[in-house]
Nucleic acid binder design. Structure first.
Lengths: 188, 188
DNA sequence: TTGCAAACTTACTAATTAGTAAGTAAGTTT
DNA sequence: AAACTTACTTACTAATTAGTAAGTTTGCAA
């Protein structure tokens, strides 16, 4: 009885686990048990844990590229809101973002994973930098630093925001969003 | 041959490992092997890994209390710089802060550890909030939000800043510090 | 209908994991 | 000097880990 979407279910669950507990805190057994298949079925789709970890990151890269395309026609403020929204959903689901999850376990992960992750981080940073640069030029956002710097400030706010929400509660995160918008001059 | 400081060496190494790779990415074997003692010696000082993890967090709480006392007589700006400095050292040593390390692995950790960690997070946030509130009242810092919110913004900048520095390089972190100061109006 | 490939299961293995029980050597106290 | 404590080591164990080899079932194509 071949379930055609087992591969995708494994991939989704692996990402969930990485962003709930970290890469080294879950086992193939936990995945197979949760999905009601055998350990070897997971190895059939992803021969090693490193391959599984890499595919999780690669699919996140694809998802971010899709996000870019899908939001490209929106206004700058709507694009920023859509970006922030993805983190709000993370916060509500008690999930940290991949950037945080991978960077914290950095020296306990296969180098391949951290290298591919650098690509995703750059992708996000470049996108945010561009958004802020245009927004500043158009007088939509106000800040007195390089857009690269402001981009890092907002990304770190969001990445650690979902982390600290686990320790201090979700109100902390929504409060943080308000702060980001105030500093950007987009508070209504 | 009793080495009197074995306990402290274990504690220090455990904290290093948690902040390098995460709690679930190191073993008692790694600690004992690194320190040149036997696995059972680590269990002698810290019967379970949970106890070891708890002691790491408790010693970090004590360290932060000491930091508060030691810097209490400094100017607000010097206190802020001292606080930021601890993160700069982390960044140079490729270590993330405990708040980030614990919150990312949150659902893979013993509940005792996450509960004690909530105390440290509150301690840091209260301290920063107070510093910013006074600094704003005295006209030293400028920001248009509650000091609680600004405190969370700076803490998340620093916490995720050291994380993202692993993926993007240390210049990213020093750039971030400049941004924080610009937004606080303490750039010289 | 036979052949074949995809998607598994069964049944393992070797290594690593946290943890323990029992012993020992070197001080420290009485 | 005897009794005791501290700080270990030796020698394990049971569970969990990632990973594998050899089948089996199912659907599809020739």
């Amino acid at each position: 009885m071949a379930r055609l979407d087992t591969r995708q279910q494994i991939l989704d669950l692996a990402e969930d686990l990485i962003r709930s507990k970290g890469y080294n805190s879950f086992s193939y057994h936990e995945i197979s048990h949760t999905l009601g298949v055998k350990n070897a079925a997971v190895h059939y789709h992803f021969p090693t844990k490193e391959v599984l970890g890499l595919e999780v990151i690669r699919s996140a890269i694809q998802r971010f590229k899709d996000f870019k395309e899908e939001t490209a026609s929106l206004s700058l403020e709507e694009q920023l809101d859509a970006f922030i929204q993805t983190y709000s959903i993370n916060s509500e689901n008690d999930k940290v973002c991949l950037v945080g999850a991978i960077s914290v376990e950095f020296y306990g992960l296969p180098e391949n994973m951290t290298n591919v992750m650098k690509g995703l981080t750059r992708l996000i940073h470049d996108w945010a930098t561009n958004l802020l640069a245009i927004g500043k030029a158009e007088g939509m956002f106000t800040f007195d630093m390089k857009p690269e710097t402001k981009a890092i400030m907002i990304i770190t706010n969001l990445a650690a925001g979902v982390q600290i929400a686990r320790l201090m509660g979700n109100e902390t995160f929504s409060d943080l969003i308000k702060g980001i918008k105030i500093d950007l001059g987009v508070n209504q």
